[in-house]
Amino acid sequence: MAVLVTGGAGYIGSHTVAALLERGEEIVVVDNMQQGHPQAVLGGKLYEGDLRDEAFLNQVFEENEIDAVIHFAANSLVGESMQQPGKYYHNNVYGTLCLLEQMNKHGVRRIVFSSTAATYGEPEQVPIREEDRTLPTNAYGETKLAMEKMMRWFDVAHGIKFVSLRYFNAAGAHAGGRIGEDHRPETHLIPIVLQAALGQRPHISLFGDDYDTPDGSCVRDYIHVSDLADAHVLAVQRLRGGADSAVYNLGNGRGFSVKEVVELAREVTGCEIPVRVEARRAGDPAVLVAASERARSELGWQPARAGLREIIASAWAWHQARPHGYEDERV
């Protein structure tokens, strides 16, 4: 039996494929290559296509014996979602509906969902717990919450069990050095900072320095991408064991501000990284830090690469080896 990984050629998806391969799983990857890279898929069977294409998705299920799905495929840029909410509802919500309908049609009853801390919006307390209020402040978070709710009703109606993993900022690169973070355009803080260290950007933009935080910049909980991948694999195993549907936060429980990330990156790289303060971005909460005790106790998840210095160092090794990402032919 195979695990279907949607969006498996993307950043977190490809690291999850690597984690599944290390455990001897049979893998099927579906990706429309909007943000994915075929070179990032280290094994398994790769299909290039869109979840919203009914005939294509039906073919994938017909040709493979799939017993579980890990769902990453979604647009995920907060700023863009505020400007083009329709794009996010069509790709994220409708795409998930198409996937769930095919799962139901073909009798696949397990799905692990790559959700987001953006479902909470401005937190009522820090660290954020799974039972806290969900009130997204941007369209991206709203679509992810809608996808979670859809899965709950497919569970009620059809018995499709789900695990939704809400997490914060993924960062770092695979220890083997073969895969890393390469978005076009790049919007994530750590790779942007490292691009500035490489001289590929004249500076980085600090979007707001007047938040209600110790140094005025946004605070986020950073997790190594391989630790996130491990959590998705553990969630599949839990569903295979007959567990009920559940929602889990994933996080280190320790937040770092934008200014702290930049300063640590300067130490790791030994490079000057100029910073320019700009206006706040719409929909950015001041602080997002997760309480992940539930994932640790029920999934048995223990982040093995929890230090921010280690996370940045692994990303720096990837960017040094491939300064132009997957377009760079050097290994």
Rank of each mutant, 00 (worst) to 15 (best):
K259F: 12
N32V: 04
H15P: 03
Y211D: 08
D244K: 07
P202R: 13
S226K: 06
P202G: 09
V163H: 14
V289S: 10
D155A: 14
D155Y: 15
T269H: 14
A315C: 08
R238F: 00
G208F: 10
E181N: 14
R330C: 14
V3P: 07
R276M: 11
L234K: 12
A157G: 06
A246H: 09
L99M: 09
V28T: 04
V29C: 00
R201F: 11
E263F: 03
E272W: 00
I27L: 04
A170C: 11
V78M: 02
H188I: 12
A139R: 00
Q102N: 11
D227R: 04
R281G: 06
V275D: 03
V5C: 07
I204D: 11
I179Q: 03
V156F: 15
A146F: 03
L194W: 09
T187E: 15
L57P: 07
D67K: 06
H232P: 04
I190W: 15
V163K: 13
A235Q: 05
H90K: 09
S245K: 12
I70F: 07
A146S: 03
G43D: 00
S114M: 05
P274N: 08
G325H: 04
G283N: 05
G8D: 00
G241W: 08
G49Y: 04
I190N: 14
D210G: 10
G300K: 03
S114Q: 03
K144N: 13
S226C: 11
M150E: 14
R133M: 06
